[in-house]
Design a protein around this nucleic acid. Structure first.
Length: 639
RNA sequence: GCCGACGUAGCUCAAUCGGUAGAGCAGCUGAUUCGUAAUCAGCAGGUUGGCGGUUCAAGUCCGCCCGUCGGCUCCA
């Protein structure tokens, strides 16, 4: 007699060792169809494994979070099986589940997306056949003989500990795998291959180059369609395309990885920086500026020459070696050390919009997201150990203020001491505790990445979430125990002793370039009024009304608005269309009626038109919206 | 840097097997004076990313280089 305790406390009894499927059937037919795997005594196992002892069992159905991962893992096997049928000489390596789906690294001749339909057709055959997926446990010796012809699998098996090794079989296909898997291939309902790229075996460039084929899978067609739609939407919002269409920035062969900002892009840039300066001033920061070209000896002292040299641009001038700064901190150290500091001066919050250059590998450049020259909204905060918590908390609050202005959500990740690190245990404990207690005081949940910190100190990374739900790492707060030593920083404490200040580096936008790119995609080019390059366009109905429109524009200009008159001899329809295409937030039509009454017809980007809007009240409404840095408009009152 | 794809007019894209580089939009000229997403006509616009090669003939085939994109890796 086997008795099985279900999560709701019910107990089911069997006179034999039932499989998960039998257990599900004994509860309901629907459950047996949606069950994917099960958890027996908190271990995930296959649904068709027999439960041979009294156990607590939870059935994992298609609605559970783990189910998707299990099924996608099976999907990777299905894809591998299809590929082996079409490319018998292909050699499999590994095929894990990733955030958005799965991939399989395969040693085979290069494939392209044009080959996907053929592979997908084969995949469909395997899915329709509903091949049972069976787990088989073999000894290491058996596994080695089973994979005599699979060099990568052999290499993996040899590295496994002795003992049983599990193999999953479906039809003619068998793959070395820990499992669990769905019961049969038919459960991989909606699958799509997405892209292919190169990857190295064991991520080692000296080893074989493999084909990494990415795919994704869902339990039903609609979810897959939604996901593909999301990908389309992301493509539509690509900041390179929108940046081109809205004339914001460009890249040129003469300076790869270094953005050129156009007048309209600079309006957004300056709006970002004006706002940044406003909130930083209010948060007690002072602003500094340091040179971008600095003598080699400084970089030797900071440690960059030894550790970061391959990413640095260097120059020899009058037989003296210089480097273009890849980071702002060494310059900041020189500023700090210019004068002695009292404990009364601390915390000292010194900000700098610093232009840095990093010679990133050519293959990693990616629009504004990954460039070689960028501006960091950097700040160095020097403080006493007792001030850590309050200062970190202050930065976290500033982070929240700034991101919420853009309607961006965010989450925090704390990274602690890595294997290779400098400093004493006490220093690390004090620093890490400081960050932890600041996070506790802040009160928002955070993820802990044990051992992921920089060698010079622990850090808090801020990951923002955009309108499509994608996350980006922008802000980072890093505690630095190295530079204060190297530059021999100190302050004079109350007891007249010279002490080493604690120092943090922090950025909130991260890189202005990247942040701007993220905002382009986040807003899909429809910027809030306060950032919009052109806030309003005035459309006179005919040539005779152009001078009047110009006079109205001057009134707007005097109020500090960014406006233009489109006085081309073109149809109103065309002017509206063109203004709408570049997402001009306010389209103002001026005809005889408006001139007569001193009003405006205001069209907003939703296509709605408010007629008879009083000019003065319009200006007030708009100025108020800009002052509040609102994300939306809320309509215009009639005159 | 490595693997793969790509690079044609300001922009978006065509050009069959190697056989005279085209179109729409933008621009210019003229006409049209218009009530909320494209008025009409004409004109002009190119060393096909660069250098070299094969060929009677190269946008197309080959080599090298540059750049872009997707990955690897790394990171703001």
């Amino acid at each position: 007699m086997i008795s099985i305790t279900l999560p709701d406390g019910n107990i089911k009894r069997f006179d034999h060792a039932p499989t998960g499927l039998e257990l599900a059937r004994s509860i309901s037919e629907g459950l047996s169809r949606s069950a994917v795997a099960m958890e027996v005594d908190r271990r995930l196992v296959d649904l068709n494994a027999p439960i041979d002892h009294d156990a607590a069992v939870r059935l994992v159905t298609t609605r559970d979070a783990e189910a998707l991962e299990i099924m996608r893992h099976s999907a990777a096997h299905v894809m591998a099986q299809a590929i082996l049928r079409l490319y018998p000489d292909a050699k499999l390596t590994i095929g894990p589940v990733v955030e958005e789906g799965f991939y399989y690294d395969i040693d085979m001749p290069p494939v392209s997306e044009e080959d996907f339909p053929r592979i997908e057709a084969e995949i469909r055959k395997i899915i329709q056949a509903k091949l049972p997926i069976r787990r088989r446990e073999v000894t290491k010796a058996e596994a080695l003989s089973l994979y005599g012809n699979e060099p990568y699998k052999l290499e993996m098996i040899r590295e496994l500990a002795d003992g049983t090794i599990s193999v999953y079989e479906q039809g003619e296909f068998a793959d070395l795998c820990r499992g669990p898997h769905v019961p049969h291939t038919g459960m991989v309902k909606a699958i799509k291959l997405l892209k292919v790229s190169g990857a190295y075996w064991r991520a080692d460039p000296s080893r074989a180059q493999l084909q990494r084929i990415y795919g994704t899978a869902f339990f039903d067609k609609k979810e897959l369609d939604d996901y593909l739609h999301f990908l389309e939407e992301a493509k539509r919002r690509n900041h390179r395309k929108i940046g081109q269409a809205l004339d914001l920035f460009s890249f040129h062969d003469e300076a790869p990885g270094m953005a050129f900002f156009h007048p309209k892009g600079m309006v957004i840039w300056n709006a970002l920086l004006d706002y940044w300066r406003e909130v930083h001033r209010a948060a007690g920061y002072v602003e500094t500026k340091t040179p971008i070209l600095l003598n080699r000896s400084l970089w030797e002292r900071s440690g960059h020459w030894a550790n970061y040299r391959e990413n640095m641009y260097t120059a020899t001038i009058d037989e003296v070696e210089y480097a273009i700064k890849p980071m702002n901190c060494p310059g900041g150290m020189l500023l700090y050390n210019r004068t002695p500091h009292s404990y009364r001066d601390l915390p000292l919050r010194a900000a700098e919009i610093g232009l840095v250059h990093r010679h990133e590998l050519s293959g990693v450049l990616s629009g504004l997201f990954r460039v070689r020259a960028f501006h960091q909204d950097d700040a160095h905060i020097f403080m006493t150990p007792e001030q850590i918590e309050a200062e970190i908390l202050g930065v976290l609050r500033l982070v929240e203020t700034i991101y919420s202005t853009f309607g961006l959500g965010f989450h925090l990740e704390l990274s602690t001491r890595p294997q290779k690190s400098i400093g004493t245990d006490e220093q690390w404990a004090q620093a890490t505790d400081g960050l932890k207690s600041a996070l506790a005081a802040y009160g928002k949940a955070y993820k802990l990445n044990e051992g992921d910190g920089a060698f010079y100190g622990p850090k808090i990374d801020v990951h923002i979430k955009d309108a499509l739900g994608r996350t980006w790492q922008c802000g980072t707060i890093q505690l630095d125990m190295s530079l204060p030593e190297r530059f021999n920083l100190h302050y004079v404490a109350r007891d007249n002793e010279r002490r080493r200040p604690i120092m943090i580096h922090r950025v909130i936008y991260g890189s202005i370039e990247r942040f701007l790119g993220i905002l382009v995609e986040h807003f899909a080019g429809r910027f809030p009024l306060w950032m919009s390059p052109l806030q309003a366009v005035l459309l006179p109905m005919n040539d005779e009304l152009a001078p009047y429109a110009q006079a109205v524009k001057e009134r707007f200009d005097a109020a500090g608005l960014r406006t233009e008159v489109d006085s081309r001899t073109e149809s109103l329809n065309r002017k509206v269309r063109e203004a709408q295409l570049v997402h001009t937030p306010l389209i103002l039509t001026i005809g005889a009626r408006e001139k007569e009454a001193g009003t405006l017809a205001v069209r907003t980007l939703d296509g709605k038109v408010a007629h008879g809007v009083d000019q003065a009240r319009f200006i007030d409404t708009v100025l108020d919206n800009i002052r509040r840095r609102a994300l939306d408009f809320e309509g215009f009152p009639k005159a």
